[in-house]
Nucleic acid binder design. Structure first.
Length: 892
DNA sequence: GAGCCGACCTAT
DNA sequence: TTAGATAGGTCGGCTC
C-alpha cells in the first residue's frame, strides 16, 4: 500500500497552499531549536526582539509517508522552588515582585528579560507522605529560554543572592533537572512516537520563501493547538510508514593500514532505502570509477571523489529518510564522510539533514553505567532524522562475544557477509569495472544487512513502543540510560496529581560512593551441589520486585519519615523488614505502585490482543509493546536504588529486597515443613537451591508429571501466604539436574511432561563470553552427554580426546581465541592483564584500529619462556599470521 | 602455595 | 553532563 516506491520522496501536497485540512503525523523526533518567527502566524509571549524565537521542531511522518515538520511555539521552560521561609517571601505581591526582579537581574544577560513570570501555586513534593493532599505554596519560575534554567538553578542555590530579601536558607528545587524537550512532552501530554494532529485552521503552512526544512509539510502551530493522541488505543496505536536509509562506505587505505580520512579516499558508498514496516527496498551504489551493472541496484559511477560524496548527499536529501542507519555508522562511516568532505572542501556535503542551513556534525560522547560499563562513541546530529546505529542497538540488547557485522549477521540472520578481505579492497578498486562491481556487491551487502537486522530483531517496533510506553522521545532510547524512562513516567504521574519531583543534589562525596554497596540485596540459598536424577521442580515469584512494591504500597509518596510515625494509627502503616514505614493503600495509593499496576495490566491486555491479531505489522507493534511494558516494570525498582540517579530512595529499594529475602525464606520453610512423609507424602521434600525469587524443590518422586503436579499445588499454597498481587508460580522441572554451586547449574528442562524443552545452562563456562570456543564447546558437549545421553564415561573419553587434540596441535586457532571487554581507560587499571596489555600494544602499532573503551578485545596466548608473564604473551589472532607457530597450545 | 583482591561476567 | 540494583563464581596477578 506504499505510495512511495520511488527513490525521491513525495513532496507535492494537494492542499499545500492552505490550512484547510488537519495534518496528522507520527512524531519521530522533538528538538528544541531557534526558529524564525513569522509574526502573522505565531503569537510569541513577551515577544523577542529579533526574528528568532525558541521553539520545538517536531518531525514526523503521515500515514501517506509524507514528512512533516511542525514548529511548535509558545511553550516556555520553567522550574519550581520552595523554601522553609517562603511564607514570609510570599506574604505580599510586592515581595514576590521584588524576588522576581532580583532573580531576573542575576539570570538575564544584556537587554533580555530571562524571568517571564513567577507564580505561587499550591503543590506538594512526592517525597514523604503528607496528609495535606492540596499542598502548599511553591514558586513556579517561568523562563524565556532553556539555557536560563541552569543559570536560574545556580542562582537559587546561593543564599547570598537573596540576602536583601531577608532570606537566610537556600531554596529547595523541584524539576530543575528536567530536559526542556521532556518538559514540553510531559506538559502537552505527548509521548515519544505518538501521533499528533495540527487541526484545520489552527496552523500556518510555511511557503517556499519561509521554509526552513526540507519536509513535505512544514507548519507553525501553537503548543496548545497541536493535539497529542493516545498511543495505546486505536486508531492512533499503529505505526507510520517510515523511510529508512541504510548505508556503508568503502575506503582505499595504504596496504595493511586502517584508512585515515586525511589521506585515504572514499571509493564506494552503498545506500539501501527501505520502507518499514513494508518490505520494499531500493538499492544504490556510488562508485569512484566505472562499475559493471548490478541486478536490482542502480549504479552511480563518479569520476571524482568529490562528485561521489556530492551524489550521495544529494540522493539522501531526495530520499528524505526519517532514519539513517548502518553498522557502526556513528563511530566510523558518518564521521569519515564528514572529515573527507571537509578535506576535499565539498562544502554542501554536510547539508543532508532536514534543516536547510544546518550541517551534520559528529562529536565524541561518553556514556558510562555500572550495567554497561564505559563507552566512548562519536555521535552525529542530523537534524530531523534519527541516526540509528544497529551495532549500538545490538551491543546494548544482546550479550555477544563479538559484535562484528559478520558475527552478528551469522548469529541472527544465519547469513554471512560477502567475504572480501581488507587487503583486497584497494586491488579491486584499482582493477576494472568488473572488480569494482565485485566490491560494490560487497558494499551493498553491508548496507543491506543492517536493514535485515532491523527487521529480524524488530528494532523499530520495539523502540517505538518503548518510547510510547515510557513517554520519552525516541532519541533518548538511543543515547540515554534506563533511568530517564522511569523518571519520565514518574514525572507525568506526579504532575497530574499536583506533585513535584525534588531535584536531587548529588553530594560531592556521597554515601556509598562508587564500588561500595549501598544496601543489602537478595538472598541466594546455599546450593546443595550434586547430580540429581529425580525431577527438581522450580517455583518462581512472578515479577517479584514489582509485586512487592505494589503489595506493600512502596513509594516516595507513601514513605513516612523517621520520627513522624506517631502521626499515624498502627493500621495505617506498614513497617518493612528494614524498619522503614509506608502508609497503606487506603490512606494513599503510591505513584510507583500505580505506575506498576498500569504497566502490568497493560501488558496483560497487549498479550491478550496479540492472540486475536492477524495483521503482522500490528502483531509486531503489540509484541514490542508487551516487551516494553515488562522491561519498564522491572526497571522501577532499580531506579529507586540508583544512588547516582535522579531520585534515589533507599528505603524503597532496601525494603523491597528485604521483603524478597523474607519471602524466599518463608517459601523454603513452608515447603520443608509441609511436604513430608509425616504429612502423607511419599518423600520428605528438600529445597536444593534458590536465588532471589526462585526455589528448586526435590519432592523426591521419580516422575516428571508428579513433580509438576506437586509443584503447581505447592506454588498455589505458598501464594496464599502473601498479600496480593504476589504470586508464586510453578514454572518448570529440571530432570536430570546438575547443580554445581550458587549461580551455576545445568538441567534438562521440562515445561510439559510429554517431552523436554531444552538443555538449560546457567553461569557455567558455556554461557560466558570470556572463555575460548574450545572450552565452551567441550563443556557444552560434556553437559549434553551427561544430561541428555546420560553417558558419563563417554564424556570423560570426549574430554580426553579434546585434550589430546590440543596437545597435538589439532585445534584451530579460532577455537583458542579469548575475548574480554575493555571496561575502562587502559591507564585506570590497577593490575595487569592480557587483554589490557594487548590493547596498549595495539595502540602503539595503530591507534585507529586499537580497541577503545567498551570494545571487546580478542586475543590468544603465545608460547613463552618460564619467566614470561602470561599477560605479556597476548596477541591479536588477526595479527598472528607470522606468529602462528609460536602459539602455546597448552595455555588455555 | 595460601590467601587476598581486582577484573570480568553472569544470575536474578 | 551522565549514569538501573546486589550477589557471587572463577581466574589470574600480587604479596608474603
Amino acid at each position: 500500500m506504499s505510495t512511495n516506491q520511488t527513490w525521491t520522496r513525495a513532496i507535492d501536497v494537494a492542499d499545500a497552499a492552505s490550512n484547510e485540512t488537519p495534518v496528522t503525523f507520527m512524531q519521530t523526533s522533538v528538538e528544541d531549536a531557534e526558529v524564525q518567527a513569522h509574526t502573522r502566524s505565531v503569537r510569541v509571549e513577551n515577544s523577542m526582539v529579533s526574528g528568532w524565537v525558541p521553539a520545538f521542531r517536531v518531525f514526523g511522518v503521515t500515514r501517506e509517508s509524507l514528512s512533516v515538520c511542525a514548529h511548535v511555539h509558545g511553550f516556555l521552560p520553567y522550574l519550581w522552588c520552595a523554601t522553609p521561609e517562603h511564607a514570609m517571601l510570599l506574604a505580599s505581591e510586592r515581595q514576590l515582585t521584588q524576588f522576581t526582579k532580583v532573580l531576573n537581574s542575576i539570570v538575564s544577560e544584556k537587554a533580555e528579560k530571562a524571568v517571564v513570570r513567577v507564580e505561587s501555586l499550591a503543590r506538594r513534593s512526592v517525597m514523604h507522605h503528607s496528609r495535606d493532599a492540596s499542598g502548599v505554596a511553591h514558586l513556579k519560575i517561568t523562563l524565556q529560554r532553556a539555557s536560563h534554567i541552569a543559570k536560574c538553578r545556580r542562582a537559587l542555590l546561593c543564599v547570598e543572592n537573596f540576602k536583601s530579601l531577608g532570606l537566610t536558607l537556600p531554596f529547595d528545587l523541584y524539576e530543575a533537572d528536567v530536559d526542556c524537550t521532556l518538559r514540553y512532552m510531559v506538559d502537552t501530554g505527548t509521548v515519544g512516537c505518538a501521533w499528533a494532529t495540527a487541526p484545520a485552521k489552527a496552523y500556518v503552512l510555511r511557503t517556499a520563501e519561509t521554509r526552513e526544512t526540507r519536509c513535505a509539510i512544514e507548519l507553525d502551530v501553537d503548543h496548545t493547538k497541536l493535539i497529542a493522541h493516545d498511543a495505546s488505543v486505536p486508531p492512533y496505536d499503529g505505526i507510520a510508514p517510515l523511510r529508512v536509509l541504510s548505508f556503508d562506505i568503502e575506503c582505499c587505505a595504504k596496504e595493511e593500514h586502517f584508512p585515515h580520512p586525511d589521506v585515504d579516499p572514499v571509493i564506494q558508498i552503498a545506500s539501501v532505502l527501505a520502507e518499514v514496516p513494508e518490505r520494499h527496498e531500493m538499492r544504490r551504489v556510488y562508485t569512484l570509477g566505472s562499475c559493471a551493472n548490478i541486478p536490482g541496484a542502480t549504479v552511480v559511477a563518479c569520476d571524482t571523489e568529490t562528485a561521489l560524496l556530492r551524489a550521495w548527499s544529494v540522493d539522501v536529501i531526495a530520499a528524505d529518510p526519517d532514519m539513517i542507519v548502518g553498522y557502526n555508522v556513528q563511530n566510523f562511516d558518518i564521521d569519515y564522510l564528514l572529515k573527507r568532505a571537509a578535506n576535499l572542501r565539498v562544502d554542501d556535503f554536510a547539508l543532508f539533514g532536514r534543516v536547510r542551513r544546518k550541517r551534520v556534525e559528529s562529536k565524541e560522547a561518553t556514556f558510562s553505567s555500572k550495567a554497561m560499563g564505559t563507552r566512548k562513541n562519536m555521535r552525529a546530529t542530523v537534524d530531523g532524522r534519527i541516526v540509528l546505529d544497529v551495532m549500538q542497538i545490538v551491543q546494548t540488547e544482546h550479550k555477544l562475544s563479538s559484535y562484528t557485522l559478520n558475527h552478528v549477521s551469522e548469529r541472527f540472520l544465519m547469513e554471512r557477509k560477502e567475504d572480501v578481505h581488507h587487503s583486497m579492497i584497494a586491488k579491486l578498486h584499482r582493477g576494472d569495472r568488473t572488480t569494482r562491481q565485485r566490491l560494490a556487491v560487497y558494499c551493498l551487502k553491508d548496507a543491506l544487512l543492517p536493514v535485515r537486522l532491523l527487521r529480524k530483531l524488530m528494532i523499530i517496533f520495539n523502540l517505538t513502543e518503548m518510547a510510547r510506553v515510557t513517554g520519552v522521545p525516541l532519541s533518548y532510547l538511543l543515547h540515554r540510560g534506563q533511568s530517564i524512562k522511569v523518571f519520565s513516567q514518574l514525572l507525568r504521574r506526579a504532575n497530574v496529581a499536583g506533585m513535584l519531583l525534588p531535584t536531587h543534589e548529588r553530594s560531592a562525596e556521597g554515601e556509598g560512593g562508587d564500588g561500595g554497596v549501598a544496601y543489602e540485596g537478595a538472598t541466594v540459598l546455599d546450593a546443595k551441589a550434586g547430580f540429581y536424577e529425580v525431577p527438581i521442580a522450580t517455583l518462581d515469584f512472578a515479577s517479584l520486585y514489582p509485586s512487592i512494591m505494589r503489595a506493600h504500597n512502596l513509594c516516595y509518596t507513601t514513605l513516612v519519615p523517621r520520627g513522624r510515625e506517631h502521626e499515624y494509627a498502627p493500621d495505617e502503616l506498614t513497617v518493612t523488614p528494614t524498619g522503614d514505614r509506608f502508609v497503606r493503600s487506603h490512606v494513599h495509593r503510591g505513584l510507583l505502585p500505580a505506575i506498576l499496576d498500569d504497566l502490568l495490566t497493560a501488558r496483560k491486555r497487549a498479550r491478550a490482543l496479540i492472540k486475536t491479531t492477524e495483521d503482522p505489522t500490528m502483531r509486531g507493534v503489540l509484541e514490542g509493546r508487551q516487551l516494553a511494558l515488562k522491561l519498564s516494570a522491572n526497571s522501577v525498582y532499580g531506579f529507586t536504588g540508583a544512588t547516582v540517579g535522579k531520585l534515589p530512595c533507599l528505603p524503597i529499594s532496601a525494603s523491597t529486597t528485604a521483603f524478597g529475602r523474607e519471602m524466599i525464606d518463608e517459601t523454603r520453610r513452608f515447603v520443608l515443613q509441609e511436604y513430608t512423609v509425616a504429612n502423607g507424602y511419599s518423600h520428605d521434600a528438600d529445597v536444593v537451591y534458590g536465588d532471589t525469587d526462585s526455589v528448586m524443590v526435590r519432592f523426591g518422586c521419580a516422575d516428571v508429571t508428579e513433580a509438576m503436579r506437586l509443584g503447581a499445588l505447592a506454588a498455589d499454597r505458598v501464594t496464599t501466604l502473601f498479600p496480593k498481587p504476589v504470586q508464586l508460580e510453578f514454572e518448570k522441572v529440571y530432570h536430570p539436574y546438575l547443580l554445581m554451586g550458587k549461580k551455576r547449574y545445568a538441567g534438562l528442562m521440562w515445561t510439559c511432561a510429554d517431552r523436554h524443552d531444552k538443555l538449560d545452562t546457567k553461569g557455567i563456562e558455556t554461557v560466558r563470553r570470556d572463555n575460548c570456543a574450545l572450552v565452551r564447546r567441550t563443556i557444552s558437549e560434556v553437559l549434553r552427554r551427561v544430561l541428555l545421553k546420560r553417558d558419563v564415561q563417554g564424556s570423560v573419553r570426549y574430554v580426553q580426546e579434546r585434550v589430546r587434540d590440543l596437545l597435538a596441535g589439532r585445534v584451530d586457532i579460532s577455537e583458542l581465541v579469548i575475548t574480554k571487554g575493555l571496561t575502562r581507560d587502559v591507564s585506570d587499571y590497577a593490575t595487569r592483564s592480557a587483554h589490557v596489555e594487548l590493547a596498549v600494544k595495539k595502540r602503539k602499532r595503530d591507534a585507529a584500529t586499537a580497541p577503545r573503551v567498551g570494545d571487546r578485545v580478542p586475543y590468544v596466548i603465545l608460547r613463552g619462556h618460564k619467566a614470561d608473564k602470561t599477560y605479556e604473551l597476548a596477541e591479536d589472532p588477526n595479527d598472528l599470521r607470522a606468529a602462528r607457530e609460536r602459539m602455546d597450545t597448552v595455555e588455555w
